[in-house]
């Protein structure tokens, strides 16, 4: 351990914790957005209208085909040319939210399609319409199937929130880099950064394991 590790840590920690705050904000915000968008894509994908299905498929493929970092650049640096100026934080949440909605969509679709067709027939036979069947029969059952992979998306998202640093959001990774480049205490700083990420991701992993045990089988 380098000399003065504890002293340096005590000095850097408050700044890094600010970064943690932004990391959590970006992660939670983009998780919420990607969930809503992803569910929208998935519902369009299983719609009876071909136009909706095609639109969803097309959109998801476009999103999946472009690196997250490029999407972030586009939203933060290009959209202002069209009169849409977002703060770095807003751009990060929207960019990561859109990028991840594609993965969420595939996950949700798999969950919806895993429901036994007999369930839909039973619901139809008591006079339920499509929307009601989706809300009362399919989605509540799909949630159980989707939860474990959803937990994995949360972990990936937490780590990928560091990409927000590329558009100047001073989240954990960027704070670390700034401190390191001004103090040259690379080892101390990046060890702390890594530890802080682990402090967030390990509990999430434990939660995924729990979810898998609770809902995964059957």
């Amino acid at each position: 351990m380098p000399q003065g590790f504890w002293k340096d840590s005590a000095e850097f920690m408050p700044i890094l914790l600010q970064g943690v705050g932004l990391t959590i904000l970006v992660s939670v915000g983009s998780l919420a957005l990607s969930t809503i968008l992803g569910l929208g894509w998935a519902l369009m994908r299983v719609s009876q209208h071909a136009a909706l299905r095609q639109t969803s498929k097309f959109a998801v493929n476009i999103i999946r085909g472009i690196p997250i970092i490029v999407q972030l650049f586009y939203i933060y640096f290009v959209l202002p040319d069209f009169g849409i100026a977002l703060s770095a934080l807003q751009a990060a949440i929207i960019g990561l939210g859109i990028a991840y909605s594609a993965y969420q969509a595939e996950n949700f679709r798999a969950g919806i399609e895993a429901i036994d067709p007999g369930q839909i027939e039973a619901a139809q036979s008591i006079g339920m319409r499509r929307f009601l069947i989706m809300r009362r029969v399919i989605l509540p059952q799909a949630v159980r199937i989707v939860l474990p992979p959803y937990g994995n998306v949360m972990i990936m998202m937490l780590k990928d929130s560091s990409q927000a640093s590329t558009i100047t959001v001073a989240e954990l990774a960027l704070q670390g880099k700034l401190i390191a480049s001004s103090t040259f205490k690379n080892m101390t700083v990046f060890s702390l950064v890594a530890l802080l990420y682990l402090c967030m991701s390990l509990p999430l992993m434990a939660m995924v394991t729990w979810l898998e045990r609770r809902f995964g089988r059957k």
């Binding site: 036994d116 007999g118 369930q119 027939e121 039973a122 036979s125 008591i126 509540p140 159980r144």
Partner: peptide, 16 residues
């Protein structure tokens, strides 16, 4: 469908 109900071979109860 609300007048003609149906009972299925595999029951198809809502498991949740």
């Amino acid at each position: 469908r609300t007048q003609v109900a149906m009972v299925f071979q595999r029951f198809n109860l809502f498991p949740h």
